[in-house]
């Protein structure tokens, strides 16, 4: 499913203006749920991260959590 919202700034993904967000994403876990734009509870660990949306559940870094 294509993301409806930008996980860095929480605005509509289609709106444009996400150039800085793309740069930021390289060194930043997601902050907003891509499905509903709620701010997520994010835990960064030495080797990964988890991000939880109260509505859409938890997602994990591709490398795993810790």
């Amino acid at each position: 499913m294509a993301a409806a919202f930008c996980d860095q700034c929480g605005r509509s993904a289609e709106a444009g203006g996400h150039v800085r967000c793309a740069v930021r994403r390289e060194l930043e876990p997601p902050r907003y749920c891509a499905e509903c734009a709620r701010r997520m509870v994010v835990q960064v660990t030495p080797m990964g991260w988890t991000a939880r949306c109260s509505r859409h559940g938890e997602i994990f870094s591709p490398e795993g959590v810790c």
Binding site: R31, M40, V42, Q43, T45, C66
Partner: peptide, 20 residues
């Protein structure tokens, strides 16, 4: 800021120490 409050539990803390 987009950073929300979060607490880590002890098992996750130990896991993070192990990975380190």
């Amino acid at each position: 800021s987009p950073v929300r409050a979060a607490w880590l539990d002890v098992p996750m803390l130990v896991e993070a120490a192990k990975q380190t």
